[in-house]
Simulated scan of single mutants.
Amino acid sequence: MKTLDEYLAWIENPSHRERMEEIFNWIRDKYPNLQPTIKWNQPMFTDHGTFIIGFSISKKHAAVAPEQEAIAHAKGDIEKAGYDCTENIIRLPWDRPVPYALLEKLIDFNLRDKADCTTFWRK
């Protein structure tokens, strides 16, 4: 896979595909400066060559991966909203609305925190 469209076509469940397309379109509309890319067969968005946010899917949820620092920054909001998370991912169940305010907080944090980052991942 090389594009978001190829990734979306790969998703077998139509409602899961629609949800991911909705999320990707929201990111493209809200953050037109972010570059979509596929790395390790996962869709990601970057800014000036550095990772900002990535996604993956499973049968029960979509996973958001904004790096550990962003999750730590938003931990209270994640818990308050009732989402399950680990140090590396936030699980968004398919049967719940997309928490766009939370995604915005994660993306905005990474854009500020990684503004001068010269590597793909934080060091």
Rank of each mutant, 00 (worst) to 15 (best):
L103F: 14
H61P: 04
V64A: 00
A101E: 13
K80H: 11
L4Y: 02
F55A: 01
E69N: 13
T118C: 06
R96C: 06
N33A: 11
T46D: 05
D84A: 09
L34N: 06
A72C: 04
A74D: 06
S56L: 10
K30V: 15
I57F: 00
T3W: 10
E104M: 10
N25M: 06
F120R: 05
D29G: 06
E6M: 09
L111R: 08
K80M: 06
R91Q: 14
E21Y: 03
K80Q: 15
R112Q: 15
C85M: 13
A115D: 12
H48W: 01
E79C: 08
A81L: 15
D5A: 09
T37N: 08
L8N: 00
K59V: 12
E21C: 07
Y83D: 10
S15Q: 14
W10L: 11
A101C: 04
D47H: 11
M20E: 11
M1S: 09
P93G: 01
N41V: 09
S56E: 12
D113Y: 12
V98P: 01
P66T: 02
F24C: 07
G49M: 06
P36C: 11
I23L: 13
P66E: 03
K30E: 15
K105Q: 14
L92S: 03
T37S: 14
K59Y: 10
A9I: 14
I71F: 07
R17M: 05
D5G: 04
G82F: 06
I38M: 11
F109E: 11
M1W: 03
M44V: 12
I38E: 02
N88T: 14
K75P: 09
A9R: 07
V64F: 06
A81R: 06
I23R: 00
A62Q: 05
A63H: 00
K105D: 04
V64L: 13
N110D: 10
A81H: 01
E79W: 00
V98T: 15
W10C: 10
E87R: 15
A70D: 06
H61A: 12
Y7I: 05
L92C: 06
L34F: 04
S15V: 14
I11S: 03
F45E: 00
T46A: 13
I107H: 01
A63F: 00
L106K: 02
